[in-house]
Structure formats: structure tokens, C-alpha cells
Simulated assay, not measured.
Amino acid sequence: MRELTYYVAVSLDGYIAGPGGEFDTFLAAGDHVEPIWSRYRGTAPTQLAEAAGLSVADGPFDTVLMGKNTYAIGLPHLPNPYQHLRQIVFTSTPSQRPEGSDAVEFTTADPTAAARALKQEDGLGIWLCGGGALAASLIEEIDRLVLKINPVVLGAGIPLFGSAGYSPMAWKPTRTQAFESGVILAEHVRA
């Protein structure tokens, strides 16, 4: 059975982006980049990875899930951001397809039912790359939680799990690695 991994950058105070979707305060350079990329190869938009000389081949995922706001971050320049992966965008307006997005699957399907069906398919892992609201709706289906914790406090923004409400859920740490850049890679599995 395939696993769903929520792999995302997050601030010290638990935000995956600022109030307007800003993520430019997260570190894109430093001693953490190469080791994290080698572990989670293929988790950058295809064109950006190739421009940086990073191979997207042989990564742990073959499918990426995202909400419409996460997808929209790359528009209009990257309408087909993860060309090397199967891309599924959850949206309430699937008919509004940006030009150049033919390889992207837009769906109004229930995210939980969709994730369960994807887990039954053959293939590599499934990567949930955002956003917070989608993560909140999929929290029961997430098998692994991988956080790139950045040394910044945002104060407000999009929470890691949207507005999931109070519902404690235990996770077991499997690996933690701190870097001189201040980034901490924290990996967990459902307890």
C-alpha cells in the first residue's frame, strides 16, 4: 500500500505561508538544501529544479496532491509545475483550467476518498505539498509528516493544518536533523 506524506516547509510558529501566501522568508539556500534534496528528490517544480541543476529522477514520490491555492502560486509561469509527477489539484472550480495545464488533474472529489483510492494503486509514495486546509481534511490519511522547520516566526498566516480544530493526534519521530542554516528536518510517522 502506498503512503501519503505531508512534506512541507513550516515556520517555528506553525505556518506554511504568510497571510497572503508568502513563503519567501523560508530559506532556499544553505547547508540543508543538498541533504534534504537527496532524501526528497523531485519535490520542486520541474523547471526550477532543472534550472538549479537538480535531477528530479528517482525520488520517493510519483504523485503530488495540492489545493488550488498552492497550485496557483506558480501561475501564470508554471501551469504544469511538477511535470515529472502525476499532479492532482483539489478545487471547487475544475473547469477554470489555466493554459498549459493539460497534464494537471483538477478534481472536485472528496480528498479523503481520493487519497484512499490512490493509496490502493501501484506506485511510489504520494506527496501532499499543501495547503493547510487540504492537509486538515486529509489528516486521518496522512501516514508520514515531514517538516522543514525554518528559523523564522511569521506571526500569522496559513497554519500547517488549516483550521482543523482541537483534536490531539500523536506522531512518532523517526528522524531529526539540524543544519547550520537553522533549518531542522523533522520526520514523523503516525503513532
Rank of each mutant, 00 (worst) to 15 (best):
I139H: 13
A109S: 14
S11L: 05
A17K: 06
G74D: 03
T46C: 06
L4N: 03
P94Q: 01
A109C: 05
T63P: 04
L27S: 04
F106A: 04
H84M: 02
T25F: 11
Y15Q: 05
I184S: 12
G130L: 03
G165M: 07
R116M: 05
R86C: 00
A9Q: 10
S95V: 07
A136C: 04
N69D: 11
K172L: 10
Y71P: 02
E121N: 12
E121Q: 15
Q96T: 14
A52G: 10
G42I: 01
V183C: 01
T108Y: 04
I139T: 12
Q47D: 14
D62V: 11
W37T: 03
P159E: 01
G20E: 06
A9K: 07
F90H: 02
P98Y: 02
A72C: 08
R2Q: 07
G162L: 03
P60I: 00
S137W: 01
F106I: 03
A49R: 05
T70W: 06
S163H: 15
K172H: 14
V146D: 12
E141M: 04
V153Q: 10
G30M: 01
Q120K: 15
V33W: 03
A186C: 09
E121K: 12
A191V: 13
A52K: 15
I16C: 08
P45N: 13
S55Y: 06
A191D: 13
A57F: 04
P35A: 09
P151A: 01
M169F: 11
F26I: 07
A72D: 04
A17G: 15
P159K: 09
Q87H: 11
L65T: 00
P81Y: 03
A133L: 10
L138A: 02
E187V: 12
Y40A: 12
T70Y: 08
L75G: 11
L145P: 12
L48M: 15
W37A: 04
G131Y: 01
P60F: 00
L78M: 12
N150A: 06
P35Q: 08
G157S: 06
F90A: 02
N150G: 05
G20N: 14
P94G: 03
A28E: 13
L124Y: 11
G30V: 06
T5M: 09
P94N: 02
I126G: 03
D143Q: 11
T43N: 07
I126K: 05
I142N: 03
Q83R: 15
G67Y: 00
G123M: 07
A17W: 01
